[in-house]
Write a protein that binds this DNA or RNA. Sequence first.
DNA 1: ATGGTTGCTTAGCAA
Length: 256
Amino acid sequence: MKIATWNVNSIRARLERLLQWLEKECPDVLCLQELKVTDDDFPFDAIQKAGYRAAVHGQKTYNGVAILSREEPERIERGLMDDVDDPQARLLAADVGGIRIVSAYFPNGAEVGSDKFVYKLEWMERLGKYLDRLLGSGNSVFLCGDFNVAPDDKDVAHPEQWQDTVLCVPEVRQALERIRERGFEDVFRKHHPQGGIYSWWDYRQLGFPKNNGLRIDHLFATPELAVRCVSARVDRDERKGKGASDHAPVIAEFKD
DNA sequence: ATGGTTGCTTAGCAA
């Protein structure tokens, strides 16, 4: 079983690349982030022709997440399901093959100390409570997506340049660690403990040509799932050329 | 250094 996550930065702008990638990579499940379309504008027909079903939690212009899968996704749930009135479409869960798949697009946070940064930290706290409910019912959970956090300096090409930013400050790293500690293993780290592999490169200032990257897209699995994970990798080639997303897909494979 | 690039929406925001 192959499960991947990819922040496509607009599914409209990335549709041709996405279809080609599905044909090349044939994942069983693909979690998408930053669709930037409403459910009505999601390209269901093209995705179905490619052999995939889609659960979608869309939003106009910003955010938007989806789960594509060969099998029909079941028990679809949108959002964090708490008492906060939050219009941002950043979380989607569905069952595929007996696994609770969660596609998450964590807030970026803009600048440390800004209102958006406060929202990021609060959103991560809310996600923690959401996961407590999920894990409490004994689910096998695969939480993946654009977490907008580089967990460690070894996940950053130039840590000194990023240490005080919203992707790296100790506050967000600690918040992510509190989520992981609820019962997940970072299955990419499991296979690449040395670091030095990245999933996002800024469009600006030649981020990709200079390999000024960060690993902010993650695959978190509960233990019984993590032991079955036999490989994990970043498809760096997908970041190349004109019309690439600023994120590359991250892929994990599981034995049966 | 408040830059640079991309996408959505149409000059300004978010990333």
